[in-house]
């Protein structure tokens, strides 16, 4: 399986680089896009002075770096996850079902969104501009970013798999996953119950960013173990929902090839 994923990565990267100018424009454009919001936070913190419910400027920048790298990794390595709904309702899943590989990883890793490289670059640059260079902090940042990429993809799989049961759930799944990204870019402490309950479950912004940010700021083994357990639970849930949905899948007689 790893061999296949490696081949996907190399193939998708070379396909993206085929149109080098377009690739670079997308990467640069995404980088610039993200930079704009940093200005917003700089001005805001300068105006109010102090912090926002315990979040200083540096903490918010950590959220941005984590979100950018985590989201970017998801788009680069698992870029097909956002298309699961359309693949299901168009009957294009047949192509993956016929291949002698595990369906889910094969499905989600078979496409790369080149703009994701802009997010990856931005996340790394922003981290080193605003955060600590201490090796254990850098390691924590990388681990949390990878975790975010995997859990974010798992959330996408769960919601897009609803297409198996409800018909086309593409817009719903897209909205929920975009909400995850939107919420994690703001300090978690500004939200209070009952919205925090939703942000710990249905839209798990707390799990992918706010709790990692707390652990990064002040290491807590117990919290880390709880986080890892919750992440594993989401990943298992995504596999279970997808497999259950797959049993309901019936294709048409659409002919298709993947070259």
């Amino acid at each position: 399986m790893w061999k296949l994923l490696k081949k996907y990565f190399v193939f998708n990267l070379s396909a993206g680089m085929e149109y080098r100018a377009s690739f670079l424009i997308q990467v640069f454009g995404m980088f610039l896009n993200n930079c704009a919001f940093i200005f917003f936070w700089m001005i805001l913190y300068k105006r109010i002075g102090g912090d926002i419910n315990g979040y200083g400027f540096s903490d918010v920048m950590f959220l941005w770096a984590l979100a950018a790298l985590g989201y970017g990794l998801a788009e680069v390595f698992m870029g097909n996850s956002r298309f699961i709904s359309s693949i299901i309702y168009k009957g294009e899943l047949d192509v993956y079902l016929l291949q002698p590989r595990a369906i889910l990883p094969n499905l989600v890793c078979s496409r790369m969104n080149t703009a994701g490289w802009g997010d990856v670059t931005y996340g790394i640059v922003l981290y080193f501009l605003t955060q600590s260079f201490e090796p254990h902090k850098v390691l924590m940042f990388l681990v949390f970013s990878i975790l975010m990429a995997v859990v974010f993809t798992a959330v996408r799989i769960i919601y897009h798999s609803l297409t198996f049961f409800l018909g086309n759930a593409e817009q719903f799944a897209g909205t929920i996953t975009e909400m995850v990204i939107m919420f994690i870019l703001y300090p978690g402490s500004i939200f209070s119950a009952p919205s925090t309950w939703i942000l710990h479950s249905v839209i798990p912004a707390a799990l992918v960013a706010w709790i990692p940010a707390e652990i990064f700021a002040s290491f807590d083994l117990k919290k880390l173990l709880v986080l890892l357990s919750a992440d594993v639970a989401i990943i298992i849930l995504s596999v279970v929902v997808f497999q259950a949905g797959l049993k309901k899948y019936s294709s048409g007689n659409r002919m298709g090839t993947r070259i």
């Binding site: 926002i52 939107m182 919420f183 703001y186 500004i190 939200f191 919205s195």
Partner: peptide
């Protein structure tokens, strides 16, 4: 989101 942010 902005209401939550500005309220704080």
């Amino acid at each position: 989101v902005f209401f939550s942010l500005w309220s704080v």
